[in-house]
Design a protein around this nucleic acid. Structure first.
Lengths: 151, 151
DNA sequence: GTACAAGTTAAAGTCAACTTCAGGTCAAGA
DNA sequence: TCTTGACCTGAAGTTGACTTTAACTTGTAC
């Protein structure tokens, strides 16, 4: 029972594809040491880090934003639960805002379906401020389309 | 004051780029007749159709889904307000579900930030069912990044 | 000691929804 | 008539987050 994890181990335990783990490393989100032969060897701490990335994506952060968030963690020591809690606290208002946007959209929609207008600027729905109330740039996953092991 | 609209007219009046209008036509979302010289000539009805597409996108439908929705409109006659209202009525439960997903995510997040866990499957947040609660595949627009005229 | 699963890389491919480009043609006002 | 802006097409490019492929190397179980 070795102390390190191979990339396959991490993939199995996080549900990520190995290609995604390598990609995250290239993107500076993850780090690894290497075996003599050049294969990746991970510390268990990596599991929490991957979990953080996954959850952050679910909340709607881009990999760039996640990288920044990870960079704000203490470099000198292994992050504690408190450290993780601290960085993820910023997500809450973000979610609140997304919810509020959707609710406004829903309410307008109720009005506009009633009148059947949908007529460009006359209609409150046809408003660029509301665009991307729902969508953003982010992971391509749809429901039920996550990493294979969890499917 | 001609009865038809050129692609530029439609672009100005809907806020879409002409390239997007041509793209939608290739994708079977819009239709046009042609001038003698081969330029697109649109009926005023196109404006409502474009509005429908835009609003449907805001709600989170893919162009594929929008095409299907448009196909369900009466073919033989020009759609009435009631027809439009009918197809867009299906959006409401969709929005409700998106909002519910986000709210569940937010509540879990509150719990999990409290405990600072974020520890893979032990944590309620690390759950593929919740993936893409926030995001979907859709337009690349971000807030303030809509068609140029409306910017 | 050997087979074979698991790992390595760089580069190219995927997807959705468009935009941009190159190289032309059309149409409307002076 | 001429000029110039608007329009045409097909093909290639863009973005983010990955996956796939090809060609090769490592590590481990028997």
């Amino acid at each position: 029972m070795d102390a390190w994890l191979s990339i396959g181990d991490v993939a199995r335990r996080t549900g990520m594809a190995t290609s995604a783990l390598r990609f995250y490393e290239r993107e500076g989100l993850l780090d690894s040491s290497r075996s003599e032969g050049g294969q990746r060897r991970y510390h268990r701490e990596i599991l929490r880090r991957v979990a953080f990335v996954r959850v952050a994506q679910t909340v709607g952060l881009s990999l760039d934003e996640i990288r920044d968030a990870l960079a704000s963690l203490p470099q000198s020591r292994t992050p504690t639960k408190t450290d993780w809690a601290h960085v993820s606290r910023a997500w809450r208002p973000r979610l609140d805002e997304q919810i509020a946007n959707l609710e406004r959209l829903r309410d307008k929609l109720s009005d506009c379906i009633g009148c059947g207008c949908l007529s460009l600027r006359a209609c409150a729905l046809y408003n660029p401020e509301d665009r991307a109330a729902v969508l953003g740039t982010g992971p391509r996953y749809l429901l039920g389309d996550g990493p294979s092991e969890l499917r």
